[in-house]
Simulated assay, not measured.
Amino acid sequence: MKCKALMLPLFSLLLLISTIVNANDLKVGSIALVPLSTLHPTQPAIGYDQVYYKLGRFQADPKKQFDEICEANGQKGLSHFTSSSMPNIPSSFQCDEAVGTEKKDMKTIVIAPNGQYYLTDGHHTFNAFWQMKDGGKQFKVNVVVAKDYRALPTMAAFWKAMAIDGNTWLQNSTGHAITYQQLPTSLGMANFENDKYRSLMYYSRDVGWNKPKSPVPFLEFYWSKEVRKGIDLSHYDLTSAKGYRQAITDVSHYLINMKSDNVGGSGKTTKEMGQFTAFNKKGLNKLFNPKKGKVTYMLKYKNSL
């Protein structure tokens, strides 16, 4: 057993190295190890409060930090780490499986005609990795190539295809249309607008809705478009547990009562988008657990800034 435990990190490290060497030969389905600085965003906004939860949790629970790194790399979860483990040194901790074993859990990129990588899933997780201690722009992650657009003649053709394929979200934090030229050029929270509605969609999961088995890209943003129509978040104190609890409650009830065959222009019904038939109070209470609730971690971190 001891021998097996020592071999897994070495195997994973060798796979990481080989991924870097073969980066120029990527194709759809390939796994690539890349620094965060090489990933270009495909959306203009994120929910800051979702990232704040992750950062707050990482500070209070280092095990969760390493566990999330393992999951993002398709390694299921964390099996071993010590007080001297470093998130930017893969050999200092051990994951359950080899890189890419759980490919479905990994974040995705597409390759543009200019050869650059555009992130189509994982903006919140990777911004947390960028902002966390020992993270930053040189922090390396494994990603999966979802589509290769290098055969297209121009970047203008690329962005047209990206819009048709649903691989970019060209609306800002207030719900207004933008052009692809207005997208951030790099990860890092300071480069993104803060979409409070996107945050509330994250925290209302398992209360008023949950992600379906086959979600559309940018699922939460489609929901957010609908929530903006009926709920004004400026009426809530989103720095307090009481205010946040009421916001999640109202958003969740709004989702549950919604009837639509085309949520936010997604072409999907409310049921297909994960709508619950009843309010899940247990899920709400879990968010505010005083020791390990997601909102508890988030508010503590946010209010310390």
Rank of each mutant, 00 (worst) to 15 (best):
D25W: 07
L36V: 12
A32C: 07
Q246Y: 03
P41Q: 07
K63R: 10
K107G: 00
Q138W: 04
A177E: 15
P9I: 09
Y53N: 12
H80L: 12
F192Q: 02
A241F: 15
F288C: 04
T82D: 02
G283Q: 06
S91A: 15
K294L: 03
F66G: 06
A241C: 02
K54R: 14
C95W: 14
N285H: 02
T179H: 10
S252M: 08
Q246R: 12
L119G: 03
D232H: 09
Q275V: 03
F58R: 00
F276S: 06
K213H: 11
V28I: 11
H253L: 13
T154H: 06
L238K: 07
Y48Q: 05
K268F: 05
K63G: 12
I89V: 15
H176M: 04
S199T: 12
L187E: 11
W223L: 12
K133Y: 06
I164V: 14
H123E: 00
A23I: 15
G56L: 06
K27P: 01
G136I: 07
M1F: 09
N24I: 06
K281Y: 00
T168I: 09
G77K: 13
A60L: 10
T277G: 13
G135Q: 14
D250T: 10
I111E: 04
S260Y: 03
K4M: 10
A112H: 10
L39H: 07
E102R: 14
M155N: 12
A156W: 00
Q275I: 01
L16F: 07
A98E: 12
M106V: 11
F126L: 15
F66P: 08
D96G: 03
I20T: 13
L219K: 11
C3F: 13
F221C: 01
K107V: 01
D105T: 05
P9D: 12
S18F: 04
Q275T: 05
K160Q: 14
P290T: 02
T270E: 08
L36Q: 13
Y118A: 10
N262W: 00
L299C: 11
F129Q: 04
I248Q: 08
K259Q: 13
K104P: 00
G293F: 05
D49N: 08
G56P: 06
M7K: 13
Y149M: 08
S37F: 04
D134L: 11
V110S: 04
R198E: 14
E102N: 13
K268N: 09
T154S: 15
A72F: 08
T296R: 09
T108D: 09
E193Y: 03
M273K: 10
N88W: 00
Q94P: 00
S30T: 07
D261F: 01
G188F: 09
L152V: 07
R245S: 15
T296H: 09
Q131L: 05
Y203S: 08
A241L: 10
T101C: 02
T168A: 15
N194C: 02
I164H: 05
G243Y: 08
F139G: 08
T42K: 14
R245E: 15
